[in-house]
Amino acid sequence: MSSQLQSGVSGGAKTEMIALRDVHLTLGSLAGDVNILHGVDLSVMRGETVSIVGPSGSGKTSMLMIVAGLEQATSGQVVVGGQDFGALDEDGLARFRRDNLGIVFQSFHLVPTMTAVENVAIPLELAGRRDAAERAAAVLDQVGLGQRLRHYPGQLSGGEQQRVALARAFAAEPKLILADEPTGNLDADTGAQIVDLMFSLARDHDTTLMLITHDSTLAAACDRRVEMRDGRLTGGAALKAAE
Rank of each mutant, 00 (worst) to 15 (best):
Y152A: 00
V117Q: 10
G144S: 12
H151L: 00
R129D: 05
L145K: 03
Y152D: 01
G231R: 07
R168H: 06
P112S: 11
A137E: 06
L93R: 13
Q162E: 04
E227R: 14
P182V: 05
G102T: 02
H151D: 00
R225D: 14
D204E: 15
A138Y: 02
L166G: 06
V104P: 10
C222T: 09
M210S: 08
D180L: 06
P123K: 01
G154T: 00
A202L: 10
T113I: 11
S200V: 07
P112T: 05
G146A: 10
D189F: 08
G146T: 06
M114W: 12
L156K: 01
Q193E: 13
G128E: 02
A116L: 02
Q147A: 15
L140N: 08
L166T: 04
F170V: 02
R135Y: 00
D223A: 14
R95N: 08
H109L: 10
D131I: 00
D189N: 09
D206H: 15
L149V: 01
V226A: 12
V120A: 06
A202Y: 12
P182Y: 13
D230M: 04
V111Q: 15
E134L: 04
A237C: 10
L186Q: 03
H205N: 15
A172G: 06
L110E: 02
Q147M: 07
F108I: 00
R150P: 00
A171I: 01
A167M: 07
D141H: 12
T208K: 12
P112Y: 11
H205P: 13
V226H: 15
G146E: 09
